[in-house]
């Protein structure tokens, strides 16, 4: 007779093993971010990849998110004759939540997947082993530049997304719903505080770290063959997306507990 506790225990041990391996990978990766030698060309390549080449997809996401938000807010708020709050809702939603979360999720799909696939392919074709034989630490050469670029560049990307998202809301409000342009902009400017912007950028930094960490971790531990790389890619995107949503809640709680309590 099979002990019913065995699969539970086995799953728990597997969870602990994965968690331990991830923590050790994170600590190792972070330690290589601050210890020389530094691979400037690798870092520059990742900065361009994350900070520049993702802008079109993030920009498109942001502008449509802002436009839909303005439209939906209008249809909802019109019931209470509160249409004037649309500018505030769009600005706060974009800077605090939608900008960082949507950009984080888009980048998890675009960058996290690409990193897992690239490093995973390098792993199964022995390129990672080749780095070691060439006296180059793969953690330092492959992982550290990606972690640094992800953490530093996502706030920049999200800031651009914030501007584009608010502009999307402005377009709908002014040209579709007939709002006064200067009033709309003034309402937007007045409602936003430094905390709204900064909290979004801090979230973006955390999401950039999570996305690159998951991409590197799953690629680095990729199994053999095309199937292994495919699985690593899927795992990178799924785990990064879930972690982004979890961490988003924790950071929101941290930044806005007073508002919630008040």
């Amino acid at each position: 007779m099979i002990n019913p506790l065995r699969p539970i225990g086995s799953a728990f041990l597997s969870f602990l093993e994965t968690t331990g391996r991830l923590v050790m990978f994170t600590v190792d990766g972070l330690s290589h971010c601050v210890r020389p030698p530094f691979y400037g060309r690798q870092l520059l390549r990742q900065i361009i990849e994350i900070g520049f080449l993702t802008l079109p997809v993030v920009g498109l996401t942001a502008i449509f998110a802002g436009m839909v938000l303005a439209l939906q807010s209008y249809t909802g708020f019109a019931r209470f004759s509160a249409e004037g709050a649309i500018a505030s809702v769009v600005a706060l939603s974009i800077t605090r939540e939608l900008g960082p979360v949507l950009a984080g999720l888009m980048i998890a799909g675009r960058i996290g997947a690409a990193m897992a696939a690239e490093i995973g392919t390098m792993r199964v074709t022995e390129q990672v082993d080749a780095l070691t034989t060439l006296s180059t630490n793969p953690m330092k050469y492959l992982v550290a530049p990606r972690l640094i670029a992800g953490t530093l560049m996502l706030p920049f990307v999200v800031f651009i997304a914030d501007v584009i998202g608010i502009f999307g809301g402005y377009l709908v409000a002014v040209y579709k719903l007939g709002f006064n342009p200067s009033n709309y902009l003034q309402n937007t400017w007045e409602i936003l505080t430094t905390l709204d912007i900064v909290s979004g950028l801090v979230k973006a930094s955390a999401f950039g770290f999570i996305t690159t960490l998951m991409g590197c971790y799953h690629g680095y531990h990729s199994g053999g063959g095309a199937q292994g790389v495919g699985k690593a890619t899927t795992n990178a995107v799924v785990s990064a997306s879930i972690l982004i949503l979890c961490v988003n809640y924790i950071l929101t709680l941290f930044f806005f507990t007073k508002d919630v309590a008040g």
Binding site: T121, M122, T125, E126, Q127, A130, T132, T133, S135
Partner: peptide
């Protein structure tokens, strides 16, 4: 240690089965 091993690897060359050239 890893750094000592890196020093040893400086006097080592390796030809991999499928060459393992860096695609990028």
């Amino acid at each position: 240690s890893a750094s000592e091993r890196e020093d040893i690897n400086q006097q080592v060359g390796m030809l991999f089965q499928a060459a393992a050239l860096f695609d990028s």
